[in-house]
Design a protein around this nucleic acid. Structure first.
Lengths: 249, 249
DNA sequence: CGGTTCCTTGACGCATATCAATCTGTGTGG
DNA sequence: CCACACAGATTGATATGCGTCAAGGAACCG
């Protein structure tokens, strides 16, 4: 769907030449078609997957075939990074959404390389904690937020991700995918977008247009405010950061 | 509530004497009373907390005061281990449930010690991935499982945790806590336990009694089967591991 | 143009939250 | 030792919000 500038893989951050070289020497580049199942629940993960091009989804299914999407991945993202260290079969499925080119790094190599390069170890920790953080958001999204809040928060995340001050952006995935990721049905997602239209956010197909750059502010929380602050939090009337520091009254 | 044999902290696993010594040298032991808030959403975490005695909960709250419990921690568990590496304010609150004695390891020290001791780094990765895994369970528990399945799964987890082949065990926390952790109200939790009583599991107060050791088997999944297999999976008529390997037919 | 896929909109039912009342156990003070 | 108070758990009645099922519409592609 929407185009992405090739994002730098977080797992390679600050690695020295030698370390990177060793990693590539031990890895394989491979293409996969849309729909291809890379990992099924119960499989033992053989590789860490790094997305060069295309998109993947990680999901869980129950015996009825219902699925809940855990993450939606674009280029620069990796998966199985956490599962490799869980020490059991994979608790998730991984499926290709759009034709993808992946770098496959063998699990055994990852485990030993963590012991050899502490910077690599730190990167793995950071990536896994990031997954954990997004999982936490998904949890309270499903238990303490209304559908409107969930969708609003998701839109705000997307808006902040492409730092451009642009007042419009595109949804990065199919609506039905996003709906499942947010723990609701496509129907409910659709109805929720309708409600949001009455709140200063125009939705036309996959394009989201905001009236002004603060239209999404009431969906903010301290986590996102932290990212947002890089621009101009002091202008946002109800920025959670200001409230947290007792600025409110 | 139920007594726990002092469990070994996972973050100290396989560490050598010198490493352990350095950690203790840089840490503080401290007591906290029940109800005490250790960390609030938005705070910058200053320490990693390791529970020596007592219990904690980690949770998220929204502006209405509704809370969803992420984890319930007993002795041997640690928290803030992941948050330290997230690189932003804490996305969770931490509160003492029962009077607790904690070991406080400074965040800055943890970050540097990860670079100094690769075994410690590996331990941190394992602990964080474990949190991530339990978060994943919570997610699909809330989106694709019925209340009966959620509660059954939780009971099975508890049963497997104390490896004794005992046919009865105690709930480790107040029912209202567990209910919130499972994403439901205390009322629904209570009603769900009533339903489960008709399925071969007797519930009396905080005590759970099973008719036989397979009463909880139909709540199993490949993840738990992996743990269970250490005992005697071949005896369980519907073990997911056997089905996965095509044994079913 | 016809076909397919995805999104949207409507009508309906059920499951869970909510509100409210009762019950149980536990600790406290007279 | 009993009476009381309190927190937590249970049970019941009601309602609302989401999922489900079904039909219609929009975009895309051959």
């Amino acid at each position: 769907m929407s185009p992405h500038a090739n994002r730098k893989p977080q797992i390679f951050e600050n690695l020295n030449e030698a370390s990177l070289h060793t990693i590539f020497e031990n890895s394989i580049l491979h293409d996969y078609e849309a729909g291809r199942l890379l990992i099924q629940q119960g499989d033992t993960p053989t590789h860490l997957y790094l997305i060069i091009k295309g998109s993947l989804k990680t999901l869980r299914t129950n015996e009825d075939g219902d699925e809940s999407i855990i993450r939606l991945l674009k280029d620069g993202d990796s998966c199985m990074d956490a599962v490799i260290f869980m020490g059991g079969p994979s608790p998730i499925n991984v499926q290709v959404i759009d034709d993808a080119q992946l770098l496959l790094i063998p699990s055994a190599f990852v485990k030993t390389h963590v012991l050899a390069d502490t910077q690599f170890a730190t990167n793995i920790i950071k990536v896994v904690t990031r997954h954990y953080k997004s999982a936490l958001h998904q949890i309270d999204g499903m238990s303490i937020k209304s559908p409107v809040q969930r969708v609003g928060y998701y839109l705000l995340e997307q808006h902040l991700e492409n730092k451009h001050n642009a007042l419009s952006f595109e949804l990065p995935f199919k609506k039905s995918m996003i709906a499942s990721h947010l723990g609701m049905t496509p129907e409910t997602f659709s109805r929720t977008l309708s409600k949001i239209k009455t709140m200063g956010i125009d939705v036309q197909g996959d394009t989201i247009k905001m009236e002004d750059s603060f239209s999404l502010c009431h969906f903010c929380d301290p986590d996102l405010a932290h990212i947002c602050s890089s621009t101009k939090k002091e202008d946002c009337p109800d920025c959670p950061l200001l409230q947290a520091s007792g600025y409110k009254g």
